[in-house]
Write a protein that binds this DNA or RNA. Sequence first.
DNA 1: TTTCATTAGTGTATATTGTACACAACATAT
DNA 2: ATATGTTGTGTACAATATACACTAATGAAA
Lengths: 224, 224
Amino acid sequence: MKVQDLRFAVLATDVVLFSLHDDRLWVRLITTQNTHFQGMQALPGGLIGPTETADEAAKRHIEAKTSIASAKVHFEQLYTFSTIDRDPRGRVVAVAYLGFVPWERLSEVERGSTSDARWSPLKDARGLAYDHDEIVKVALARLRSRVTYTTLLQKLLPKEFTLTELEHAYEAVLGADLDKRNFRKKILKLDILKEVPNKKSGGAFRPAQLYRFATDKVIEIEVI
Amino acid sequence: MKVQDLRFAVLATDVVLFSLHDDRLWVRLITTQNTHFQGMQALPGGLIGPTETADEAAKRHIEAKTSIASAKVHFEQLYTFSTIDRDPRGRVVAVAYLGFVPWERLSEVERGSTSDARWSPLKDARGLAYDHDEIVKVALARLRSRVTYTTLLQKLLPKEFTLTELEHAYEAVLGADLDKRNFRKKILKLDILKEVPNKKSGGAFRPAQLYRFATDKVIEIEVI
DNA sequence: TTTCATTAGTGTATATTGTACACAACATAT
DNA sequence: ATATGTTGTGTACAATATACACTAATGAAA
């Protein structure tokens, strides 16, 4: 299909799929087939079909392009990019999405690389095709902002986690160090976590109490 | 033009244009020409052309449909609505925008009504055509949220204003009463306002000091 | 079985910020 | 000069934020 043929814009979606692992943020990148950006890395995405919503298209393309089950991913609409010449093939307007998936929920295959798709540390995700550098920049800004006043971070963490893991997650996303004792006082006082009976023993040291979020819903609450 | 003819979606924009007046929020509404919603009220908007961005289309339609100079309006992208059957004429995806204009900047004509457009108190803006009730709902939620952690409210106020006017603006948007002395202490400590030399005398009582925002830019800062 | 290494878990003192609350100052109109 | 109505201000108390260091628990190794 040639996008120039269309009367108005072609609608597409691009997804900035985040995961958290090894105290760093990672993004899922693909190798673009577009001849204008031969072999370059890009965000997964594709056209929005005539009978699907933007959300549905985002989910569909994540499955098709990155081999990651969309049911494991939490999606949020990010921004719609409509610069005229953002795609050299013609007018393409992209409804960009944020996606969040806990590394622990990924299978071995989903964690790995194929010739087409791979996880990349966010810091190395530069020089992307199209305007995808810009989209990633907006995505990170949104993530950082939302993490401070919502419980969005739960979508990057496994069901059960220790307070140290939670603290490290905030530190990785915000790029800042937090005080251990003050962090614990604050996060526990918010009453958004529940202690679970289990403990996590990771080696030759005191095992840590496990917690989970009281609700699956991302709620608005001043966190950090 | 028949939108059904298009291969994929037709792209449109809808604008929730807010103003603040008489201690209430107002929205600019038009009378829709769509036969499916004969004579109903709707948000101003229209198609995004092949050679304009969504932002440009939003500005263009505000001028064309509501007779308000778009240069006076501060625009922010709100959300992209892509439900399949949101428009009975066919598949139309709408990039919705927030617009903010200070009532004081409006001319007599812009404040008034025509057969096609009018200002409506936000509370009365219900029963709109299409999914516009939903869009207005999302718009108000976004406005309320952003007002607490940004200086967005400056875009609904005249250049110079008294602290009482600023307080009333917050009260109108948030739908809550604020303590006069605590509000003043807090807002002045943020260092986002500048005293101007003038005072505003409104009658047989002590005139009020005028202030303006230190910068035109909307910045992120915990306000209320 | 003792010691070592490593992470988990906790408290307190001080500074800062939030909250509740009432009256004098100022300009104008009469 | 006095009545009117809005502006502008301070203080005491409560709550929250910040800075900071040691003990507890486990498993591994000696």
